[in-house]
Design a protein around this nucleic acid. Structure first.
Lengths: 198, 198
DNA sequence: CGACGATACGGAGGTAGCCTCCATATTGTC
DNA sequence: GACAATATGGAGGCTACCTCCGTATCGTCG
């Protein structure tokens, strides 16, 4: 308990020094490449720029999703933590709206991110490294939605998962073809007016 | 005027007999492959199964989008023609709802179709062969939307393009990760309740 | 009918990216 | 300092894209 260790199912033994170094380097380069070229960017290029072989990259992150999940971890914690800030907002309707925007921005972190996340949200495969962030977001959504429903500013038939998918699909439109701002604003308004009773 | 010719800008000279045969064969095989494996399927595999070389395929359809557009042409005409059927529906609100479903199904014809279409809808590049079908769909949407707005069953601030993007994004969710029917139904309900005043 | 120019064909070949495998190198420990 | 455990890297096998050009097929005209 003295050393910070994952409580349940921690298969992580301590890494060798070079492994730690390489892992960090890969993440740093990957972050830049995903930002610049979307999640479809070449993994080999990342390995090369990070100064490691392809094998090393794939040992640390067996799939593109694993790399993505590692990168997303910080962001996920930040966003979920923004609950505290948003929580200060008195009006539950306003809070829900802000939360939706926060999710939308998170989901737009990298071009192409909505695809794998939507898939993960639905398959619920515990082996998919993206399942965890999805569940966290949906859980957070539940809190805001519930409060909004209590206050009568959200329809009772709306489920947290539905709002999550809504945010994902807006983020997808943002990424696919670079929709103009007007269209995105219209989509947001449509969705908001969708879950909110008149 | 006796022979059926494209009225404006027809760069199509008459094809040689073998070219016509090959083109048809490619389309027939491509249809099956796109249906079975989505729009990302291997073009080389299509060429092989159609019994032509890669060069022939690329000569007829220089890009994946061109092939897609050729395949979509029939479907597009069918869907736009379904205006006639839907037009019979008296209630403009009901007609708009039906039209949205028809678009959604059209956009779900092949897995992955929403991506290129969303891109085409926004870039408005006349060289993109998918631009035409997009415009046709948006134009048709405009008719239904306008009628609905006149009847007071759609908000005045909704634009045809917004509804098109809505349909595209639902189709995308359908395709990405095979969302369960409940989620899709919820998204539809959300959207409908979004454009419709209480 | 035959031959000649125009049209179309096909598949080899260069490029790029994925992922695996294992001989070699590095690390940590005793 | 030496040995076992751990980690490395890049060659290599694979799939797919797309282009290029020598060759085959077509249609027409004499």
């Amino acid at each position: 308990m003295s050393t910070q260790r994952s409580p349940q199912a921690a298969p992580e033994r301590k890494l060798r020094a070079d492994a730690v170094r390489n892992r960090a380097g890969i993440l740093e380069v990957a972050q830049r490449h995903f930002l610049a070229h979307g999640i479809g960017t070449s993994l080999e290029a990342i390995a090369k720029e990070a100064g490691v072989g392809a094998g090393t990259l794939y040992r640390h992150f067996p799939t593109r999703e694993a790399l993505l999940a590692a990168l997303l971890q910080r962001r996920t914690e930040e966003v979920v933590a923004s609950r505290d800030r948003i929580g200060q907002v008195g009006d539950p309707g306003e809070a829900l709206r802000e939360w939706m925007r926060a999710m939308e921005d998170y989901l737009s972190s990298y071009t192409g991110l909505p695809g794998p996340l939507a898939a993960a949200a639905q398959e619920r495969d515990p082996d998919n490294p993206l399942t965890l962030p999805c569940e966290q977001l949906i859980t957070a959504t539940q809190e805001y939605l519930h409060a909004a429903q209590q206050a009568g500013v959200a329809h009772a038939w709306v489920r947290p998962r539905d709002l999550f998918l809504t945010a994902v699909s807006i983020a997808w439109v943002r990424g696919a073809g670079a929709a103009d701002d007007d269209s995105i604003a219209a989509l947001r308004r449509l969705d908001e007016s969708g879950y909110r009773p008149a």
